[in-house]
């Protein structure tokens, strides 16, 4: 059953910008990776799910509720981490979390302390003086502290150091085990590969692939059979390249990394080693 459902969503900003006929769904207890380069339409799609934007045509629903018309009901079960974080600057981190708790009427049940500890965040400092990474951590705490059933995370690890990134990945894995549904956008292959069951790739506002992470790999596995002069050479070759030896024939499977698969859909632009698409 699809908890998050997007059906034929259209939003045309003109000049080729926007999202066109985007459809996909995220099932209960699943982590869905939403991949695409900057400006592909990830955030626009998410804004529709959040009820910030009204669809020009098409429909978004969460738990069967319309994301625009019934957004306040949808928000009750939702945790959201925005891609660009902007809080009330005049508050400290702790004051902000307290305010959000009261504003949302979260009640006494909160995971705030546990999350602050997990991400080693000092809530005492002023938000104005916080670094990008600290703000990101604060956003993560605010998104998870009311223990929502559904998490929508827009580029959640941006600004986090590698240690905190892996803590975040652990957190998402734990939440998934507890039956939470996660939609996570990213332009980083690695974090999506590590956390998500299914992956959707968006390009220029259109979905170009939606499949399980495994199937995406499978589809892009190529195998080659190499014939060598003698069995000894074949064995050595098989050992070197991880192939399967069969007499003088060695079968080698070349599995593309998700990044390479991604590039297939993007028309082979050269990537830098961080896995980001040059603008």
């Amino acid at each position: 059953m699809g908890v998050i459902k997007i059906e034929n969503l259209v939003r045309d900003y003109g000049g080729g910008k926007g999202v066109y006929d985007v459809s996909f769904q995220v099932n209960q207890g699943e982590a869905f990776g939403f991949l695409g380069p900057n400006g592909a339409g990830k955030t626009t799609t998410i804004r529709h799910l959040m009820g910030f934007l009204k669809p020009e045509s098409g429909k978004c629903t969460i738990c069967g509720l319309d994301c625009w018309k019934e957004r306040d009901k949808v928000q009750a079960v939702l945790g959201y981490l925005p891609g660009e974080i902007s809080f009330f600057d005049d508050m400290s981190g702790g004051e902000y979390l307290k305010f959000i708790g009261e504003y949302r009427k979260n009640g006494a049940k909160t995971r705030k302390e546990e999350l602050l500890e997990r991400f080693e965040l000092d809530p005492g400092s002023r938000i104005k003086k916080m670094s990008k990474g600290m703000k990101q951590k604060l956003g993560i705490v605010a998104a998870f502290m009311h223990d929502p059933d559904i998490l929508i995370l827009d580029e959640p690890t941006s600004g986090l150091d590698p240690l905190m990134q892996s803590r975040f990945v652990e957190l998402v894995a734990e939440e998934k085990k507890r039956g939470k549904t996660v939609l996570m956008s990213s332009h980083m292959f690695e974090e999506v590969e590590r956390t998500c069951d299914r992956i959707g790739i968006i390009r220029k506002g259109r979905m170009v692939a939606i499949d399980s992470a495994g199937a995406l790999h499978e589809r892009h596995t190529r195998s080659y059979t190499v014939t060598l002069e003698n069995e000894a050479a074949a064995r050595a070759f098989a050992a070197d390249f991880g192939g399967i030896c069969n007499g003088v024939h060695v079968t080698v499977a070349a599995r593309q990394s998700l990044e390479e698969i991604f590039m297939n859909y993007y028309g082979g632009e050269k990537h830098d080693e961080h896995g980001t698409v040059p603008a």
Partner: peptide, 14 residues
């Protein structure tokens, strides 16, 4: 500034 996100991303009617 975008800080209205904190207000609308909550079960509070606009």
């Amino acid at each position: 500034k975008g800080s209205v996100v904190s207000l609308v991303a909550a079960p509070v009617k606009r």
